[in-house]
Computed example of a mutant assay.
Amino acid sequence: MPDPTVNRRPGRGPRAAEAIFDTTLRHLAERGYARLTIEAVAQESGVNKTTIYRWWPSKPALLRAALIHARVLDIDIPDTGSLRGDLIALTEQITRLLTDGRTEPVARAMTAGTGLPDDELAALTRDFFADRFSREQPVFIRAAARGELPADTDPMLLLDLIAGAVWMRVLLRREPVPPDFARDVVDAVLPR
């Protein structure tokens, strides 16, 4: 589903966009996708629902924008000078997102998408991960230029293995993350 904010000039969004995104994500975490409503988001964000509908004409469009553009879910793409260092830094950021009190419930709610009508939340979750993967591409482009990756390396597989380990440990098994977990995961996955 196209995001109406993507092709807009900077500064041409609702001034309260971040508050709208934060409220949307909180409502997703607290109420689930089925009970998330634009009306409740508007009321709690302090904006008219017409403002939200002007920018995001449906609940899926609003949630997609919140998942992709909310600052609370942002990660910084590292440039440590090595693929190993970059992947450890990414893994640490993923771990923080999945263990932080504000973002962990959002991640947990995102995994509840299957079984909904037309799997709307599952589709939005796929959009979120596709966006993150596209943002992380510089890590692999730089690593290839430095000769750190074999030509047949699948960057998505590497990220799936690394992020999957964090998601499995934190969200599915609900186990604590040891101090060197990011390093250990990257060392187990990175081609030698």
Results as ranks from 00 to 15, higher is better:
residue 189 V to K: 03
residue 29 A to V: 04
residue 84 R to W: 05
residue 168 M to W: 14
residue 161 L to I: 10
residue 118 D to A: 15
residue 172 L to N: 15
residue 138 P to D: 00
residue 146 R to W: 06
residue 152 D to W: 00
residue 60 P to G: 03
residue 171 L to Q: 04
residue 141 I to A: 12
residue 175 E to I: 06
residue 182 A to V: 04
residue 87 L to K: 00
residue 52 I to A: 09
residue 31 R to Y: 10
residue 145 A to K: 10
residue 51 T to F: 02
residue 103 T to R: 05
residue 190 L to N: 05
residue 83 L to G: 04
residue 110 M to Q: 12
residue 167 W to P: 09
residue 169 R to L: 08
residue 152 D to Y: 01
residue 145 A to W: 03
residue 184 D to F: 07
residue 75 I to E: 08
residue 147 G to M: 05
residue 95 T to G: 07
residue 13 G to L: 14
residue 28 L to C: 04
residue 179 P to K: 06
residue 157 L to V: 11
residue 151 A to C: 04
residue 3 D to T: 05
residue 106 V to K: 04
residue 122 A to G: 15
residue 91 T to C: 14
residue 122 A to Q: 11
residue 118 D to Y: 14
residue 123 A to E: 15
residue 141 I to M: 08
residue 176 P to C: 08
residue 54 R to G: 09
residue 169 R to M: 07
residue 141 I to C: 03
residue 190 L to D: 03
residue 45 S to V: 10
residue 76 D to V: 07
residue 37 T to F: 09
residue 84 R to N: 09
residue 79 D to M: 00
residue 101 G to S: 14
residue 164 G to S: 06
residue 73 L to I: 06
residue 117 P to W: 10
residue 179 P to Q: 02
residue 54 R to M: 11
residue 78 P to N: 05
residue 143 A to N: 01
residue 152 D to M: 02
residue 142 R to N: 06
residue 80 T to R: 11
residue 176 P to F: 04
residue 169 R to P: 11
residue 20 I to E: 00
residue 88 I to C: 03
residue 51 T to N: 02
residue 150 P to F: 00
residue 55 W to V: 03
residue 102 R to K: 12
residue 74 D to N: 12
residue 62 L to Y: 01
residue 131 D to Y: 13
residue 136 E to V: 00
residue 170 V to R: 10
residue 173 R to Y: 14
residue 44 E to M: 13
residue 67 L to D: 06
residue 61 A to P: 02
residue 183 R to E: 15
residue 109 A to L: 08
residue 17 A to Y: 08
residue 93 Q to T: 05
residue 1 M to R: 04
residue 154 D to S: 03
residue 97 L to N: 00
residue 19 A to Q: 15
residue 167 W to H: 15
residue 55 W to Y: 15
residue 146 R to V: 11
residue 138 P to R: 00
residue 163 A to F: 14
residue 85 G to Y: 07
residue 159 L to Y: 04
residue 102 R to F: 00
residue 16 A to K: 15
residue 16 A to H: 15
residue 10 P to F: 02
residue 78 P to Y: 08
residue 187 D to Q: 11
residue 139 V to I: 13
residue 133 F to N: 13
residue 135 R to Y: 03
residue 51 T to C: 04
residue 126 R to W: 07
residue 53 Y to C: 06
residue 18 E to L: 01
residue 148 E to A: 01
residue 106 V to L: 03
residue 149 L to K: 01
residue 26 R to G: 09
residue 34 A to G: 10
residue 26 R to Q: 12
residue 124 L to G: 01
residue 27 H to Q: 15
residue 136 E to I: 01
residue 32 G to S: 06
residue 112 A to Y: 10
residue 113 G to A: 09
residue 60 P to A: 04
residue 190 L to I: 13
residue 161 L to W: 10
residue 35 R to H: 15
residue 13 G to K: 02
residue 96 R to Y: 12
residue 57 P to C: 02
residue 10 P to A: 05
residue 115 G to E: 07
residue 38 I to D: 08
residue 54 R to L: 14
residue 42 A to M: 07
residue 22 D to H: 12
